[in-house]
Computed example of a mutant assay.
Amino acid sequence: MEKAELRRSLLKTRQSMSLAEWKQSSDRICTHITTSPLFTQAKTILAYFSFKKEPDLSPLFASFNGGKDTQITKRWGFPRCVGDSLCWHLYTKEDSLQKNGYGIIEPHADAPTIKPAEVDLIIIPSVACDYQGYRLGYGGGYYDRLLSSPEWATKPTIGIVFDFAYLPQLPIESWDQPLQNVCTEMGLTACRS
């Protein structure tokens, strides 16, 4: 199956999830992430705001953002589309957000930026992932370009998908960059790439 056809099929399945099923599966994903050493040891994490029924990670930001207990304080970064690249901005609960041209929630341009050297973990939204760590996104190539650059290539990554979109193999192109881990509601798995 071609990428475009597979993407359409999986997005249709995701959109058909009931609100209760989406919430329950998202919460289970958050639980698996929070118990992972990748997460517990990370201080600065790049993530995303849920779009078109992507798994909702907002419970992570609510419980770990700016907490008084320094044991659980995390710095969160979120992307802003700038041309064909992603610019990462620091986010706290008090910050306002905006919708970009795609309808995706993102930080304002004047929010403080995060440099690659500060980042401990990147949590990446995906339409699908396979057992080798390859992901199917929306087709813009933003994350493949990010992960192909030397300053980002070695950062730990977790692709986030619902279990129905975690597949044995995806069609891949030469520019596709594999992720190191995938998390579904069934658990977090290291990839075999």
Rank of each mutant, 00 (worst) to 15 (best):
V127R: 01
Q169R: 15
W88N: 07
N181M: 02
T34Q: 13
A42E: 10
C129A: 14
V161H: 04
K23H: 12
L170S: 11
G83P: 07
C191K: 09
F78C: 07
A62N: 12
N65L: 06
D144H: 09
F51S: 00
C30K: 01
Y138D: 06
L38Y: 03
I33W: 02
S9A: 15
C87E: 15
G159I: 09
S9T: 13
E5W: 07
S126L: 10
F39S: 10
A128R: 05
Q169W: 04
S149T: 15
W76T: 06
Q41H: 14
L6I: 09
S18A: 02
R8D: 12
P116C: 08
N100W: 01
T40S: 08
D110E: 15
Y102M: 12
Q15S: 13
L146C: 14
P171C: 13
G103R: 02
A128F: 04
C87M: 10
I122G: 06
Y134I: 06
T44Q: 10
A117R: 09
F64L: 10
E21C: 11
C30H: 08
W88E: 03
F164L: 12
R7L: 01
T184Y: 02
Y134W: 09
L188G: 09
W175R: 12
W22L: 08
D84A: 11
F78S: 03
S9L: 15
G141S: 06
L146V: 04
S148W: 07
E54P: 00
S16V: 09
Q177V: 13
C81E: 08
L90H: 11
I105T: 12
Y166C: 11
L90V: 08
Y48F: 11
D130N: 12
I124E: 01
Y166A: 10
D69R: 11
E94W: 07
K74W: 04
G101W: 03
Q180R: 11
R135K: 09
V119K: 07
L10P: 08
W76A: 07
I160G: 00
Q98R: 11
I158S: 04
T73H: 10
G103F: 01
S193W: 14
A165E: 06
G187V: 00
P79I: 06
G101P: 04
M17Y: 13
W175T: 13
S148P: 05
F61D: 04
A111F: 01
S63I: 09
Q177C: 10
G103Q: 03
D84H: 13
D84V: 11
P55H: 06
I45L: 07
